[in-house]
Structures are given as C-alpha cells and as structure tokens.
Design a protein around this nucleic acid. Structure first.
Length: 104
DNA sequence: CGGATGACGCAGT
DNA sequence: TACTGCGCCATCC
C-alpha cells in the first residue's frame, strides 16, 4: 500500500456520507459495516463542508450530536419519532448508498 | 509498545 | 426500554 489504507477507507466513508440525500439519514454501520466506530471517527475529524455529517445517526435513530444535529435534520424535513429519527421512513440503506456511490 | 477512548452495533439480560 | 459486555479500528497518551 503506497498510501495508508486508513485514509483510503476514510475517504470512502466520507464519499458514502456525501451520497445521503437531503431529508434522509443513514447510519454509521451502513457507511462502514466492519467498523462503525471508524465511520464516526472519520466524521469527527472531517472539516469538509460538503459532508452532511448531521445525516449520519445511530442504528436506533438516536443522535450523536444532540440538539444541534436534531435542529439541522428537522430543518431538512427528516421525520422524528420522539427523540429519535424515524428510521423506517428516513433511512437510506447501505445498498442504496452503494448504488449511489457506484453510479456517481 | 500497551491501554484508554471514541459521532458505533449487536446480542444477552 | 435500559444497561452491560464484547468486537471493531484509528488516535492519543
């Protein structure tokens, strides 16, 4: 590996994150199934404004960044069910992200 | 180089 | 539903 694989994975994670449409969300696990924590770390260190970090939520729909994140999502029209995102409606599955990043 | 920590996920209780 | 333990991988001490 000429360049660290870590940054390669990181880039792919962020690329998938960018594929999530306005009004929808996806999960850390969908971004990178083998290491959800890696997805979280990638986002936490990412400063790229093109990456919609607020659209990445936990698998159960709870938010990592609390009220700040919630406000951004509601503003995009993401449906909530109590304190969590209504995943049944707003979730973009891993396969869909796969498709979006492929055709891109 | 080993352990703790994190924007996690899941099974078990 | 909430909490716990373990697996996962990169970073920081």
């Amino acid at each position: 590996m000429s360049e660290s694989q870590a940054s390669a994975r990181r880039r792919r994670i962020l690329e998938r994150a960018r594929a999530v449409p306005v009004g929808f969300v996806t999960t850390y696990g969908d971004l990178w199934p083998q290491a959800p924590r890696l997805a979280g770390h990638a986002l936490s260190t990412c400063e790229d404004p093109e990456v919609p970090w607020q659209r990445i939520v936990r698998a159960d729909g709870s938010l990592a960044k609390g009220e700040r994140q919630r406000r951004l999502l509601e503003r995009e029209g993401v449906p909530f069910s109590g304190a969590r995102v209504c995943m049944e409606v707003a979730r973009v599955p891993a396969e869909a992200l796969d498709d979006l990043t492929r055709g891109d």
